[in-house]
Nucleic acid binder design. Structure first.
Lengths: 191, 191
DNA sequence: CTGCAGTTTCAGAAATTTCTGAAACTCATA
DNA sequence: TATGAGTTTCAGAAATTTCTGAAACTGCAG
């Protein structure tokens, strides 16, 4: 691996974190490299930059495509596929959230649903099912919230984040205001 | 493994998902078992229930303790440690969020900070650093939001979730109302 | 003390995941 | 349709992770 020091440090870090993030070292490194690169890279550029085998790069790129984390570009006059990552970090965030939900949450949600349909065959099972119901309820709430929030455009999403916990102040204010407005003039605060 | 069918299905599922969640199969299974159990279990109960070695259980419990996901109970007249999970699923959610942040986000945040302090030594590096700055900015925003939200009590948190994307309506309403209230009667909406 | 129930540690075995090189495939173009 | 640049696949090698049994440790009870 022969990269400028900052790039190299970033790439190595992504490699190390990869396993914690549910991808492997190579995939992490490839992603990091593409993320930093000012222009699309082809597979051989990656082989060169990271010093790993061609087939490993191919598999890594395949996995990143499954994650929707790379974009395929065709440079004019070059048959080879070239790859970049989406530019916009908010877009990347959305993709990662979506994919992690799909992989880490949805399967459990559907298993829970299945198990909650069944007839418990003992007191033990009745209790177990109640616990599953609690878990299911929470996950479903989170999932609904996420489905909702992910549709927001970036500007609104950013505004919401910036507001942080102060939304609740707003929430409480709402109740007051709703009363106030209802008792006074026309509608202003919806719902 | 000899468990009632619903329990067994849940335990096996957690085992399979374990690797996606950053824990291993055994740890997933132990957690699932404790989560469903109506009473605290000791290590040997777990060996018995899951059919795995005593030392494996010991390591698994140790890891779950590192995650703060189990509670140690001492039953009167029994020297052995017994384990449960926190009862409240919201509490569990908080713990998982905290631990995942600590493991999956904080290290990257600190590496990014370090790299952003350095002097870029070329145009390439300057660009790479700009990309890192974008990533750092986003992650820091998310982290701040999280720090903020995690302090909410469960009731408020639940209310916020339930509101979902509709908060933005409220946000927009706020602007209107603030004007309206300012131009009309006494203060109602804070901030 | 000594014995013993209970727990932890750890080196190596087993299982799983990742990585490689060689072979197979694809498809534009000469 | 033959060539070859580029890509993918896949079986086995290498590395890593997980799991086990045996040995070491801990601290209470007699």
């Amino acid at each position: 691996m022969n990269l400028p020091p900052l790039t190299q440090a970033f790439v190595l870090h992504f490699g190390e974190m990869g396993s914690r993030w549910g991808i492997n070292r190579t995939v992490g490194q490839i992603y990091a490299l593409l993320y930093l690169s000012p222009r699309p890279l082809c597979a051989d550029d990656i082989v060169e930059a990271l010093g790993i085998s061609r087939s490993n790069v191919s598999m890594g790129l395949r996995e990143l495509q499954a994650w929707n984390l790379v974009i395929l570009k065709h440079l004019p006059g070059d048959r080879r596929d070239h790859f970049t990552t989406p530019e916009d970090v908010w877009q990347i965030l959305r993709i990662i959230a979506e994919e992690r939900k799909k992989r880490e949450v949805d399967p459990t949600l559907s298993v829970l649903r299945g198990l909650l349909m069944q007839q418990p065959s003992s007191e033990e099972e009745r209790h177990a099912q109640a616990r599953m119901a609690e878990m299911h309820g929470l996950i479903e709430r989170l999932a609904t919230w996420y489905e909702d929030v992910k549709r927001l455009d970036t500007e609104r999403l950013a505004a919401l984040l910036a507001l942080g916990a102060r939304v609740t102040r707003l929430l409480e204010a709402k109740d007051k205001v709703v009363g106030l407005v209802r008792g006074g003039r026309g509608a202003a605060a919806g719902e």
